Computed example of a mutant assay.
Amino acid sequence: MSVSTSDLPANRPLVFDGHNDLALKLLLGKLTPDDIWTGTGTGHIDMAKARAGGFAGGFFAMFVPSAGGFDLSELVRASYDIPLPAPVPQAEALRQTRRAAEGLEALQEAGLLEICTSTAQIEALMGGPKWAAIMHLEGAEAIDPDFRVLEELYDRGLRSLGPVWSRPTDFGEGVPFRFPSDPDTGNGLTALGKELVRECNRKRIMIDLSHLNARGVEDVAAITDAPLVATHSNAWAECHHARNLTDRQLEMIAESDGMVGINFATAFLRPDGQMSADVSLDPLLRHFDHMVSILGEDRIGLGSDFDGAVVPTEMGDCAGLTALRTALRRHGVDEAMMEKLAWKNWMRVLRKTWGEAPSA
């Protein structure tokens, strides 16, 4: 199909995004709330860029960095298998996670965002002066075996959780940064990890499959009563990276009426697996086509990984969401599908996961 783009606003429809790492930049002292207000920082997301790109909010990840950092420089080799950092002790992870939560709460105090626990809140904020934010935990190292910390974070607004990043945890194993590789790289969820899924189901906290290995995804699917969701993942058929989802996994997500947010990180987009910005948006469009062929139009969204990855130069930062809309329109995406991709599909799956009434 073809659509005319001459009269369509470049920064609309608004985007509700499946994943960003802005809180990590706050945690590491690379940004302040003032930088985000004024646009004086060097990150992918600030208020000026958000207005230009039509970024309305999304999942704001709380992530515990590894001691000594994590070197991704080898992701430009023809093949790689980067050693994963050691597990983070629960006490240290909890300290860092509380600091990350305080960072998001500081952004809320500053009037930059509002931590949301319902889709009604999110939809009311979209288009307004503040971002709609879901508090998301990327890697559950901070959670204790009795789930008291889960209760604490829930009370602060946590409504989405990934059991692992890529480091091993008490809950399961993540996929390594390995190319070429499929995601069948190790053991699945531990007994405690399976209980975490059940506890999140009881509390209606979304479980994120991104970063889980193949067996972990199978374990979640066997336990959960919620839709299967990968907030920021791509298609393994288009890029043979361990981080990407196989067709079987995409089929499982479709059968559960879940969804996937397309990740803009170039290492997971490019057929050569390289974390290099020197690439057009064409690979992203190929991932989009492949995932839509399996998931359908109602189960795909955006999961940028802004402020946590290298994205195509053609996009650059969240202001470059305009370039993405233009590319999608030229690719034949009509406005009804564009709205689903930009935000409506996220609202649909969140309503199901959080136990809300369907939209009228």
Rank of each mutant, 00 (worst) to 15 (best):
A277Q: 11
F177I: 01
R329E: 04
G54Y: 08
Q108F: 02
S66Q: 07
L113F: 01
S276F: 00
G332R: 11
E105G: 07
A101L: 10
S166G: 01
C200R: 08
R215E: 14
G43A: 12
M1Y: 05
D219H: 05
G320C: 02
T97Y: 05
Q249L: 01
N213W: 06
R243T: 07
A93K: 09
M126L: 13
M315Y: 00
L150Q: 04
T5K: 10
A50Q: 08
A61Q: 03
G53C: 06
D71F: 09
V311I: 15
P227K: 06
A142G: 08
K344A: 13
M252R: 14
E314W: 00
G301F: 03
W131M: 08
W131S: 12
L245N: 05
L8M: 12
F63I: 09
E123R: 14
P129H: 06
D184R: 15
V260C: 12
A230S: 12
A336M: 08
P271D: 09
R348G: 02
F268H: 01
F16R: 09
L158F: 11
D272R: 00
R299Q: 14
D146P: 00
H136R: 05
E339D: 04
D208S: 07
V15A: 12
A132D: 06
E74I: 01
V164G: 04
D278Q: 13
P227S: 11
E314D: 09
E151P: 01
D71V: 13
C200L: 09
S4C: 14
V88L: 09
A110N: 00
E195F: 02
H241T: 11
R299V: 04
E114Y: 04
G43C: 10
G172Q: 09
S4L: 13
F268C: 01
A23L: 15
L104G: 12
D146N: 03
A86G: 07
K344S: 09
D155Y: 03
M1K: 10
M1R: 09
A93Y: 06
G57P: 05
M259A: 15
I294C: 09
D21P: 11
A50I: 08
R204D: 13
M291G: 04
E152Y: 07
Y154M: 02
D46I: 11
A323F: 11
R351K: 14
L212G: 07
K352A: 15
A140I: 01
V333D: 05
M337T: 10
R77L: 03
H287I: 14
D34Y: 12
V229M: 12
L31T: 10
L112Q: 14
M275G: 05
K130F: 14
L113T: 00
W236Y: 15
I205E: 13
V197I: 15
E335T: 13
R198Y: 07
G174C: 02
H136W: 00
K203L: 15
A277I: 01
M126V: 08
T185C: 11
A142W: 01
A140W: 03
I122S: 03
P89A: 13
A360G: 10
F59G: 04
A327L: 06
D146T: 14
N234W: 03
N201K: 14
T32Y: 00
D170V: 13
E138W: 08
C116F: 04
V15M: 06
G258D: 06
W346E: 07
I115V: 15
P168K: 05
D81H: 15
A100V: 07
D289I: 02
M1G: 15
A91D: 13
G39H: 08
L8C: 10
N345Q: 09
E138Y: 06
G316H: 03
L84R: 14
R98V: 02
V220I: 03
V310S: 03
